[in-house]
Design a protein around this nucleic acid. Structure first.
Lengths: 135, 135
DNA sequence: CTTGACCTTCCAGTGACTGGAACCCTTATC
DNA sequence: GATAAGGGTTCCAGTCACTGGAAGGTCAAG
């Protein structure tokens, strides 16, 4: 299988596959006579795993750890759970941050009439911050 | 005022102030005889504005736009509102993405007993995805 | 005069790709 | 056999918003 076939089947762009190889996330596949990378179905599985983990927001480093655990038949599930729980906590934190931003911004947007006049509570909020907004 | 005083008063690190100058977000201040940057209270206000906008998640480009509008006495508040509304929409989208990730992950984490045994629904989920998870 | 804190510039690195240039390989067609 | 299209390859640069560090100049106090 050439790289573009694998890219299609795994939903990971060819460019990204080469990148993953360059940073050591996946191992270098054998090459054809012409120097093309030759992949197996196993590689497709691996890249699908990576794709799903990335789409769940795991960092590339975390994905590396999860891959190693996945390929280790004797691993304890506790380790995997720990990685996932750390990640859930981080996602929660990000959500909270974004919720706070949204609340502040929506308030400002609501109070801004948004017409031709220059008067604007949004800019005033950013400039003065008489209210607590950016905690 | 030297750069570190401004940094302290605006909560923007000195390094970042120089960076903002280098990308043209703020204008270059006059220099002292020894070549030090010399700032005014006005500059502190500007940097505070920037700091608040950044902490609300506006991109540096958006901050540049907002700054220009802020400094334009005759701007229409509609323009500002448009920038802010676009940003709110983006924040909402990010929140939705993160909520979806969290839901999937929490489900996997819950189903993983997390003990010494190798059996692990989290890895199985990433590997097989029999369930719809990563939309 | 020296010390130490502050300032300066410039270069490099972060994360996770992505775009592009320049060139090689394969296959089909004329 | 020539050629053209559509793969593939490498490597360099750019993204975003900083941040760290090296090498060196400036300033005030002791």
């Amino acid at each position: 299988m050439n790289i573009s076939a694998v890219a299609e089947q795994s939903s990971v762009p060819a460019k990204t596959i080469r990148y993953y190889e360059s940073i050591g996330l996946i191992s270098a596949p054998p090459r054809s006579e012409g120097g093309y990378r030759v992949y197996s179905r196993r590689d497709v599985e691996t890249l699908r795993f990576i794709q799903r983990a990335r789409s769940l927001g795991f960092s590339v480093k975390d994905v590396g750890d999860l891959l190693a655990l996945w390929q280790d038949r004797s691993r304890a599930s506790a380790e995997v759970k720990a990685v996932a729980e750390r990640h859930v906590a981080e996602i929660q934190r990000k959500i909270a941050d974004l919720e706070a931003m949204r609340a502040t911004l929506k308030d400002l947007v609501t109070r801004c009439h948004g017409d031709d006049r220059p008067d604007c509570p949004i800019l005033d909020g950013l400039a003065g911050a008489e209210e607590e907004c950016c905690t």
